[in-house]
Design a binder for these strands. Structure first.
Lengths: 207, 207
DNA sequence: TCTCAGCGGAACGCAACCGTTCCAACGGAT
DNA sequence: ATCCGTTGGAACGGTTGCGTTCCGCTGAGA
């Protein structure tokens, strides 16, 4: 049982003689269907049989790539691209906050992403491997918020004693709560207001 | 097919002559097992067969009470008691906030409650009836926060123009995010700090 | 052009759960 | 003491998914 995607590179592993190779289009179709079904049924109700079927692919093609659902999810999640708009240079804490909040909204606006993300957060309690897989993504978000705080401290807008952990909670939580948990909308005016108020909260954290 | 608990009162319905009645202890055991299993496997993976088994009860006893999983969940959820410590009278906005946050923490500290609640939030997207069932609970939480804001306005600590919806998000979200989503701990110092900072945020919302 | 692994598709045995039905036993209301 | 619906338990047929295996075909590397 070699499962190249689980613990090696995807589809160019081991070509001993003049022979075939796993076709990238099949892998792509399986990946698409996997996330599609995940958003539709949730992780627990996710059936690899149905993933293969909706991908228009035989089950064997799927099981040749991944041994089971957990491995497939971990592998696919760990390959999710992090399109980070590197370091932004806005003038003030509030402007930085606004930019970060807009970035979070951009992610949470996709219904499929929103469903998968919330479902994932719940499922991690039951399947710790999933948590390991998305750790790099979490780290990226955290780094971005840390950068924001560093710049604000350098600008003397925040105290150097500010609680970074709590700050990260304060920034991400309200938007996640409103959009992902309550399923509510959120226009630019809301974001702007939220940025202003969050800024005030952070400024108040002076130990 | 009469399902008394689904659309009538529980176990005293229709006693035509000298006869038996559904036993309350069986209903209790089923209820316990239902939530137990829910916390363990999640709603999607919840099996009524297993619920009956772990309750030490025949499947017939369960199906005599509820027609299916959704009805059972809705019914049980709508009977969850809301132990609200009515109206608290603390001196300041921050003291009120602290009390509300402690109350939220008290709920989210129970691992089973935490799991069921997060799972429920995800499942509502797929099963709207569950949302209807917990609406009274949500309303209670919202009323409590509204009361807190009203008192603060009366004390002239907050502007009458404060955005109540956003305020509700600001108060509940960080704690939910930290405890339920990230699975983190949170001591009294954290709560105290959070209350102070949230107070600053609300005071800053003056339109 | 040849070769061979990946391909779609179908089927396998196994397991779990659904919702229903039957039974003998129990237990509470009268 | 009698009655009658509930009880635990077992079994039903049907559905779904798992992970494996086999087939004949296809398509890309040599």
């Amino acid at each position: 049982m070699e499962h190249q995607r689980s613990d090696g590179n995807p589809k160019t592993a081991r070509v001993p003689s003049g022979a075939a190779v796993m076709r990238a289009e099949v892998t792509t179709a399986l990946t698409r269907s996997f996330f599609e079904e995940w958003a539709r049924t949730g992780y627990a109700g996710l059936s690899l049989e149905r993933v293969a079927r909706t991908a228009g692919v035989g089950k064997a093609a799927l099981y040749r790539r991944w041994p089971d659902k957990e491995s497939m999810a971990s592998d696919l999640l760990s390959h999710v691209g992090l399109t980070m708009t590197d370091v932004e240079q806005h003038g003030s804490l509030e402007a930085d906050l606004y930019a970060v909040l807009v970035a979070i909204r951009r992610v949470l606006r996709h219904p499929k992403v929103r469903r998968i993300l919330t479902d994932l957060h719940v499922e991690i309690e039951r399947t710790p491997a999933l948590g390991t897989a998305i750790r790099p993504l979490q780290r990226a978000r955290r780094e971005r918020i840390n950068g924001l705080i560093d710049r604000a401290i350098k600008r003397r807008e925040l105290s150097p004693m500010v609680d970074r952990e709590m700050a990260a909670d304060l920034i991400a939580a309200p938007l996640y709560w409103r959009m992902a948990v309550l399923g509510g909308r959120c226009d630019s005016a809301y974001i702007e207001r939220l940025a202003r108020i969050t800024g005030a909260a952070l400024r108040a954290d002076t130990v």
